[in-house]
Nucleic acid binder design. Structure first.
Lengths: 191, 191
DNA sequence: GTCTATAAATAGATAGAC
DNA sequence: GTCTATCTATTTATAGAC
């Protein structure tokens, strides 16, 4: 990642640290050390820790939108789009087993902290929900939102249990089950 | 709660604070204030914050065992036992929407912190998994553990999304779906 | 924009009087 | 067992030189 501004570097490293260690457990000193700048310089770019969190959430929001648009551009069918979503669990399996789902764990932590940015974090989850709803609708399902929430629920549950038991076999088996459910969907009745 | 020892009071209040605000976000001062003792007195009972966490996890472990045994004593059938588990989501809905599942969020936070007590927290989740497995086995299912993990996954996913969107309607609808799945199980083939 | 130096508050933790 | 006083490290945050 060449030629990033210091501000962008801060947001990027903070994003990683907030995911890996959690928001509360990450200090300014941690971020400054990861970026390679002094703590003093830090405050030239961000006044408070909440400001960095807002920037990190904004970055994740943009990245998520881009990722979802990318899947839609690459895949031929709604089912292929949905499989792209599910395979993210496999692609990121090592990080998920160590730190959980980046979206789910941030929403959970900010809910506990009763943080003002909780709704902004939830908006990223809503991005997934709405995109999934669009795919199920494109499959001709009139219960599209319910199916989207079911798939989101299943993914979040899988991430929590994979991180809890640190069990890759479980994660892979669960993804297999989700995939089989997805490809069987067009021919089946509503669950 | 009358006549609790100071030590027990500390563990009890810490349990609440760790659930509501998170382990990392709760300070010694917070716990001492909640109990109504000085910070100095605190260290007479616990040497480190990790020691309190260990005591809290131990308390939760015992409570969970007692709760599971209680459900088994009260319910006539395995299905009734399983419904008792599911209804915990309704019973604790307000706290779950505000702070998530106490077990899932603690396991997730300790995984992120790479904390030595993470396996002890995961053992509480395993307590649920094994108890659920026993109920499905009593129903004559030879895929009992898979069903137990499916139900645990579903519950965790529901807790994460309920806390993310702070949506009681969603939580109740999801519990309804789980209950319908449960009561239909004996007559159906494996999912 | 970046640094060093430093402030002010809070964190976890200890000593010793009562 | 409980308190006050204190210590040390860390946290967020600021001031001012370069």
């Amino acid at each position: 990642m060449p030629d990033l501004s210091t501000r962008d570097m801060i947001v990027q490293r903070a994003d990683t640290l907030f995911y890996e260690a959690g928001y509360e457990a990450t200090s300014f000193a941690d971020i400054a050390a990861a970026v390679g700048i002094s703590r003093g310089n830090f405050y030239h770019h961000f006044k408070t820790k909440d400001d960095i969190l807002a920037a990190v959430i904004s970055l994740r929001h943009q990245r998520t939108e881009a990722m979802l648009a990318g899947w839609e551009a690459e895949a031929d069918t709604p089912t292929a789009c949905l499989l792209g979503f599910v395979r993210l669990l496999i692609l990121n399996r090592t990080k998920i087993m160590a730190h959980g789902c980046p979206v789910g764990t941030l929403c959970s932590e900010l809910a506990k902290l009763d943080h003002v940015a909780q709704p902004e974090a939830a908006a990223i989850m809503a991005l997934f929900r709405d995109w999934l709803t669009g795919q199920f609708r494109a499959m001709g399902r009139d219960d599209a939102e319910r199916l989207a929430l079911h798939l989101l629920n299943w993914s979040q549950g899988t991430a929590v249990l994979a991180a809890t038991f640190r069990d890759e076999t479980y994660l892979r088996a669960e993804v297999d089950r989700i995939e089989r459910w997805l490809v069987a969907l067009p021919q089946t009745h509503p669950i």
